[in-house]
Amino acid sequence: MSTAIVEQPNEVFAGTAGPLVKVDHLTCVFDVSRPWLERTLAGAPKQMLTAVADLSFEIARRETFALVGESGSGKSTVARMVVGLLSPTAGQVTIDGVSMSDPRLAAAREKLRRRIQMIFQDPFASLNPRWRVDRIVAEPIRAFGITRNDAEVEARVSELLKLVRLDPADGRKYPHEFSGGQRQRIAIARALSANPEFIVCDEPTSALDVSVQAQILNLMRDLQDRLGLTYLFISHNLAVVRHMATRIGVMYLGRLVEVAPARDIFAHPRHPYTRMLLDAVPDLAMAGRQRKPVDGETPNPIAPPPGCPFHPRCPFAAERCRTERPHAIVTGSVSVACHAVEEGRI
């Protein structure tokens, strides 16, 4: 396959030392109160929802860092802040040394944009239904002014379609003519069209059937090896994450409770919430056996519990957990925010 144009491993940047992505004390607070007039008339106070609280992590070049958590954990909000769809309330995202919120670096940030792309959850919503596939895939090429020559754009689009194992002739069709899996391939082709090095994947396979999911996950791994990509992979599915990630961060109610290399998390989960999640995952090997159900559900993020947010559901909760918020304790490559782990109780 002639992929000369597409395949340009990002060597220019690979030489730079340090992590590619650095997230510092990232916080996002949403105003979820009712409209101003209604609120004033009812005399109701403003309601704030802390979707992401004081989150810090780093992503090294060419690794896959996964954020896992249940609904309401804030993992998708992190993804949106990292690609710049949402401005953080506090904290910052730094990519390749360039802060994404420093107004003085606007020019550097514009250049950086080409190197960051996103793959979305719902392939039925992420492609403009009124655009032909070739126009969709070419949009980043034109937007970043990589080439304005129509013949070159066309050649590049067909190479990209081949790269994601679609027929270049498919470019003349509209998105509705494709299945979910084929659409996600088109979305991947679009994400790759401007030669990015960092791709944020927000639940890229959770809308797909399992056999299609396998095709897409395999494709994403192949592309990572071939093009030297770095992934931030958001998912609620631990089995998928196990297959994709090099390092994993577990989120609960907007906070990171544990960050560790993938192997460590699955072999020795430390935080009680991580343990619970692992126990709750249905597994094929379990045919006929019972998995361990956990009590309770994720609390309302508008009024999170004081102290450790997990304490109402935690079997190891002690007095300290109810009042004092645990901070991340780093041991080697593992970081855990849990009093019980810190005190050696578990």
Binding site: R80, G84, R113, N128, F144
Partner: peptide
Amino acid sequence: RKEYVDAARVIGLRAFPVMIKH
């Protein structure tokens, strides 16, 4: 709220082109 609008914003398109083109 649909993701194709997000996809256009990710590549840096400003509000006006997103409104007109997408």
